[in-house]
Design a protein around this nucleic acid. Structure first.
Lengths: 161, 161
DNA sequence: GGCGGGTTTGTTACAGTGTATCACCGCAGC
DNA sequence: GCTGCGGTGATACACTGTAACAAACCCGCC
């Protein structure tokens, strides 16, 4: 079972994500500054993975420039708190749709037609990976699992249209 | 069962890799040019993943400069033929230790102390991934599975030393 | 041998991604 | 007030990758 219903559902939850970010920071005694909130919001609102430079542009306005370096710092912070993820194959960032421990086996499903990114996780997959690593004598610290393909919604649209 | 014994075993096979590359190209009617051979050799000889610029530097000598763009082209070719792999999380390249179909579920095991990269594959892992994707209604086209951690050799060395 | 067409390589320039460094600001605590 | 500290702004830079065009090469063909 994947844990949510698609990108529309995700977008509906922007407020939830911000609320969660805020409470996570409060719990940990960390600052959820305006900049961090804006970056979190930009990542959460976009329907697809955003590059750091995209975010910088989104947040910039005539007279108020947000430099990419500031975005990177905010993203680093948000990633450390597990609030956003980095998609290595795209050099882009997405909001974390639900809490999970860092290093836990989550797969990112990247749709090549709509650009949306879903998260999926399963015991089965994690067990398979663990056993494979154990057999190889390898101690994992951090995993990157990304699959590019077509999400159900887009495939349906193609078949219909 | 992982399919080979570690980085020393890999390095011993540089000649084999070149021979395989050559025969693959001959079979497919493609050119295994001197540049492509040199790039393949550089990737195969290095004990760890090499960046394109590293390779360019390795191949350059006083009076004979190899530009990164040439290396990228050779790498693109070698990747298309399945002779080298790209490690997305490192922006770096490794030789393919053994033949496998493109898109097949191979995991890259990246050691954070020695920098070596192993390949591992298992039915179990692939099945788990397939089922997880199917449940999510996602049709995969291409997967990236990379795990960072400590390889057996390095862990042994740490415990001993 | 010369010609034409495809592929490979060289070269330059540039776009995109990410980091280092330093200065400044705001704020808590003394 | 002073100091220390985390966050931000700003500039510069390093690293990664691609576009575009020209030159060299190869190979079949006339």
């Amino acid at each position: 079972m994947h844990r949510h219903e698609g990108h529309d559902a995700c977008q509906a939850g922007v407020g939830d994500m911000l609320a969660r970010a805020e409470s996570v920071c409060r719990e940990r005694g960390l600052q959820f500054t305006p900049l961090r909130r804006e970056v979190m919001e930009a990542v959460a609102e976009a329907g697809k993975a955003q590059g750091a430079y995209d975010i910088a542009e989104t947040l910039s306005a005539p007279g108020k420039r947000v430099a990419p370096v500031s975005v990177y710092r905010a993203l680093d912070f948000l990633m450390q708190q597990g609030l956003v993820h980095r998609i290595a194959s795209r050099n882009a960032f997405i909001p974390c749709a639900h809490g999970h421990a860092p290093g836990e086996g989550v797969v990112f499903l990247i749709c090549r037609s709509c650009g949306g990114v879903d998260e999926a996780s399963s015991e089965e997959l994690e067990d398979g990976l663990d056993r494979t690593l154990k057999r190889a004598g390898f101690t994992p610290a951090h995993s990157i699992l990304e699959v590019e393909g077509d999400c159900g919604a887009c495939r349906g649209r193609q078949e219909a249209g």
